[in-house]
Design a protein around this nucleic acid. Structure first.
Lengths: 230, 230
DNA sequence: CAGGGTGTACCACAAATGCGGCACACCCTG
DNA sequence: CAGGGTGTGCCGCATTTGTGGTACACCCTG
């Protein structure tokens, strides 16, 4: 069986070297080339036709995100695995939409790196759990409302909003205020409590509705008629 | 440090036993209960208040997907990791929609299982690479298509909502994203622009709708059907 | 009475948001 | 061609929001 061809783009010399070293002891993976920058991405992939590319995100000149687009354009079947230290959402999503199919934090262990290269070639998407969580969050927000049979039943049987969501009466009131677009301060003034207490209630709401920002809460509440029925 | 409380739902006796056995040798994880079916999910989680639940998908009676919804409803902070043999997309997405934050194939090794339980508790989303790939594919599909000038023109001609409110097509798009509860960063990623540009558009929206916060904008838009018609 | 849930309040810190301005490129249209 | 509208990007700064604690008083209910 011919080994899997791998090309590496990584500007940090030490890290690049240790990657090379790592894969030297991996018989089924052959590092055919390793570059400290992405100036020659296009040529590199057309020349080497690698099955997999390991791509650092932070690099001088052409960065890893743009380079990923170039790789996929020059060789669509090549799988790109991003390597990064940061967990910035922007970059994650941009890299993924540019065609990256793996996304690993550099703190991943050697075994994990090697295994990831194999996996991405086998059609998987190795992703550090922290990254996966962010993708999932995004996924959740753009999803339709879940309709489990149980939930539907419940909604039909009892139309008590508070019971259905588990919100306390106070939380329900605060949610109404949120939906009106009020700020913490305004809510506090309206109900004669401190802004800190408002925060507490809002935290409770977030926990129970599985959201973590005003925007999500309002969206959730209005779309399901939990509030704003006036 | 108190160990992490884990509850298991798995109908296969052998597999359940081996899970129990596995975690018996994991000091930082304590399996407080294990059930062969989900008839008592709600009671189980309210009683044990586990940090993490391992949930088989295929089970007689209430299946793992519905049970997941029940778990999250009864104990929102509990993290649910799905365990399954199949890679059926519908089920994956349904489970994730219902609040599962991990998704492992049963062929995962013991170490991976244990590590996944820890990771999901630390805020990650352990996912078998094959699953992650499917989520990513879906992710790709829901991405915005870059605006061609022609498309913009078209939007201007047809979009009477935009005309009615004075919002430009781009602003309309951003408003849709706002209504989904997305953050600046997420919107930026979704439309492949910088967060600063997102800010600019949002400023434009605020000016035209006479509001000055995300909350007000979402509320305004949803209540008058300017967005969120899906 | 002990314990749980609820409502209140405070502190500290990180991240996101809102606001102001500046700049440039593109496409229309007069 | 000049100008306006739109989309994009960047900088800086003040405020708001989100997260994690701790604390205490009240009201139930077993």
């Amino acid at each position: 069986m011919t080994p899997l061809r791998l090309v590496i783009f990584e500007d940090n010399n030490d890290f690049r070297e240790s990657l090379l070293h790592l894969f030297r002891f991996t018989p089924d993976v052959e590092v055919v080339a390793a570059y400290p920058d992405c100036s020659g991405v296009r040529n590199a992939v057309t020349q080497w036709k690698p099955e997999v590319v390991l791509m650092d995100i932070d690099m001088p000149g052409l960065n890893g995100i743009e380079a990923t687009a170039a790789v996929k354009e020059a060789s669509p079947t090549t799988q790109v695995v991003m390597l990064t230290v940061s967990e910035e959402e922007d970059r994650i999503f941009q890299a993924l939409r540019n065609g990256a199919t793996g996304y690993l934090l550099k703190k991943s262990g050697p075994d994990e790196l090697v295994e990831s290269v194999r996996l991405v070639h086998k059609g998987g998407s190795p992703m550090s759990p922290a990254i996966a969580r962010k993708v999932l969050q995004f996924f959740h927000l753009t999803q339709a409302i879940p309709q489990t049979p149980a939930a539907v039943q419940k909604a039909v049987e009892i139309d008590d909003e508070a019971l259905a969501t588990g919100l306390t009466p106070r939380e329900q009131e605060i949610l109404e205020a949120l939906v009106d677009g009020l700020s913490y301060k305004m809510i506090a003034a309206k109900h004669f409590i401190s802004t800190d207490t408002v925060k507490n209630h809002i935290q409770g709401i977030y926990r129970k509705l599985h959201v973590n920002s005003k925007g999500e809460a309002i969206s959730y509440a209005l779309k399901r008629g939990l509030a704003g029925n006036r």
